[in-house]
Write a protein that binds this DNA or RNA. Structure first.
Lengths: 213, 213
DNA sequence: TCTATCCGGAACTGCAGAGTTCCGTATATG
DNA sequence: CATATACGGAACTCTGCAGTTCCGGATAGA
């Protein structure tokens, strides 16, 4: 989309002769951009940093993206694919079981990395709607979508009432984790996540913390 | 503290003759800094912008603060005093009544302004611990403190159980409001706040949404 | 092997903002 | 009224980064 090479027919622009553009380099640069973004934020990020981390030259970056803004937009969008949501979604038979099963190191690390990216973009979101949408779609939505799925299944099997505001409840953990991590700057560990599940989410859907006691 | 003029004995450094430094100007500059911070974020903020908005010269700003960083630190800290927490805290007799009574235009506007400041600082928080602490103390804590007070009163009058995790519950609304406003970029209106109170907070402390039905 | 193309890297321009210096003016004190 | 000081504003330096250009070397196809 924003990338320079995805021209009209996406073909025929490949050279008949000589060296071809390395497609793997694109991903290396995007990954490096996300790393730098997470570490320094949008304004702290320089193209030189990204190029150096990707083992590329600055010119190579600009051969593929027209500007820093477009690179960042693509890098954020690429987080979507990097997402761990392609992993199997737990189905333990109880809502609490499913929610607890979601607490795993790779899931937590992925979340923390994405939160850092979001923090690095925070000041831009109000002035760059397309970036805000990309960030929302790549960072916020995937996790909320999983939560909605788990909640819907709980409704279907009669575990919780159909009156529950699933949209609202699905945002409890993303909200509280983001606040805990970004603003309060405390580590997102298993204990905190369990506390949120048992102390907020389950009561909100009308369940007791301990499922069978 | 960070201000240049608060020297050793805080006295005798006033000139015997001639014009005195205008103390009101300090506050005008700090207010302007907060405004610009909320609108453009830390990196987008320039000293010229702040000076212009305060009706001052850039030199005047640097006569009072040694750097942009120190100005911002003081500006954030000054949000604490600007806070609306000097207003009367509601006491309606029920937790729900108190929470709903907190929903008032000045309270909401104050919160949104502070959230914008927090968004503008977000990318710096991980690399500037003192700024992070100042922001937390000026923006996060005052509101959480009120919530804790309301919850403690509810415990004292026997409305809710003493087992409730007050620390956790007091952070539900700040977290969800911040997420709603900053990340999802939706307006923080009365309807949303009521939904959070009735759909999350009250269930979390073991109360039904409609108190007397 | 030849050649068109891409590569990394370095040197370059242009600009914007932090921080400084200076000046003419305003003002409170004596 | 005289004077010492703070003021707003403009001009200045310096630094860092976005984006560009150029080059010698690497590489894949013909």
């Amino acid at each position: 989309m924003t990338q320079l090479d995805s021209d009209q027919k996406a073909a025929d622009d490949a050279p008949k002769l000589g060296r071809r553009r390395d497609p793997a380099k694109d991903q290396q640069i995007l990954d490096a951009a996300v790393d730098v973004l997470a570490e320094t934020g949008f304004d702290g990020m320089t193209i030189d940093m990204v190029a150096a981390r990707a083992g590329a030259g600055k010119a190579t970056v600009y051969r593929r993206w027209a500007s820093k803004n477009e690179l960042v937009l693509d890098a954020v969008a690429c987080l979507k694919k990097t997402d761990l949501d392609s992993m199997p979604i737990p189905d333990t038979g109880t809502l609490r079981g499913d929610l607890v099963a979601m607490i795993r190191p790779p899931t937590i690390d992925d979340a923390e990395r994405k939160l850092k990216v979001m923090a690095g973009l925070a000041s831009m979101l109000s002035s760059a709607p397309d970036l805000a949408e990309a960030a929302n779609e790549a960072i916020v939505e995937p996790r909320a979508r999983i939560n909605r799925m788990l909640l819907n299944r709980a409704v279907e099997r009669g575990e919780i009432s159909a009156d529950v505001d699933i949209q609202l409840v699905s945002l409890i953990s993303p909200s509280m984790v983001a606040y805990h991590s970004l603003i309060q700057r405390k580590p997102v560990d298993r204990e905190f996540l369990i506390t949120v599940i048992d102390g907020v989410i389950l009561p909100a859907v009308g369940l007791r913390p301990a499922p069978a006691r």
